[in-house]
Design a protein around this nucleic acid. Sequence first.
DNA 1: ATCAAATATCTCGATCATCGAGATATTGAG
DNA 2: CTCAATATCTCGATGATCGAGATATTTGAT
Lengths: 164, 164
Amino acid sequence: MSSHPHDQLAPDQQEQLVSLMRGLGTRTVLYQQNVAASLGLYNNDLKSVDILRETGPITAGELSKITGLATGSVTALIDRLEKVGYVRRANDPNDRRRVILVPEYEYKEEVGNTYRPLHQSMHELASSYTDEDLDLITQFIGKASAILEEQIKQLNVKKSKSSS
Amino acid sequence: MSSHPHDQLAPDQQEQLVSLMRGLGTRTVLYQQNVAASLGLYNNDLKSVDILRETGPITAGELSKITGLATGSVTALIDRLEKVGYVRRANDPNDRRRVILVPEYEYKEEVGNTYRPLHQSMHELASSYTDEDLDLITQFIGKASAILEEQIKQLNVKKSKSSS
DNA sequence: ATCAAATATCTCGATCATCGAGATATTGAG
DNA sequence: CTCAATATCTCGATGATCGAGATATTTGAT
């Protein structure tokens, strides 16, 4: 399908990839929302769990910066997550103002169970490639991820600028 | 780097990719949220604009199903998007109950402008690959996207089941 | 030491997107 | 023609989020 024999040139190929990436993005957002609902969490709560999973323990303020939520919202968010055992408040011995958030979802199987079918399918997809190809793809994903991170930073910069 | 000579086996490589994909997902969600804020839209409003962009005109009810929002919420959402000119309500000549949502953001340059830096970077990234490699990557992204779509469906099925 | 400014988190009233149940309009089947 | 099904909208209730101020702690200057 997608009628592009060899008479078609590269720019179009790039366009196709970028378009697919965009579609992947839309689906990712919808998927995340569905996972949250499935776990009985609010979107931002699951988002925070995912962030903590990647960063490890961070302070409430750092979570506020990353998520873009007001500090008051983060306080309430932590209360909710703590109540259901996804996270724990810990003291920073060096600065008693700070609240360190320690992920505790290792004990919560639900998260793993919910993500499992996706991971399973991804593993299956991955196993259909040679080591070499997988390397190529992995590097691409890593670079795409870095680009996104950079773009998020840029948008935040613009946000602060426009409010000055 | 990443010390995995040839004595290391595939599963680890797969793990790395899946982990990276997850990180990509988290960043995608954060990015989307930042774009929405930057455009002065609510998350679900931008989500809907993106959906409409991909699907073309659909009914209010279909948007409700895709986004998972209640019909009453979609009504308000459309009101907001219509007010700022991202979308237009049209009649379905065959069924006068229906409201068809027609995307109108071609006239809105802001969306394109906001996404542009990301697209630019993605194009740059894409242009660093050979046609062959790009093909491989494109196919992978397409498959990953299809997997996500399937997983979203599965989660919706479980949702309906558990409420019976 | 002392004090003021800066920083981190929390509190709390206000706002507003979302829900969900019911209202309204339309279609389709019998 | 009537009734059930369907599509959208209305509207009161709920609750996440905001944002300004309160509290506690740290830091730096004097």
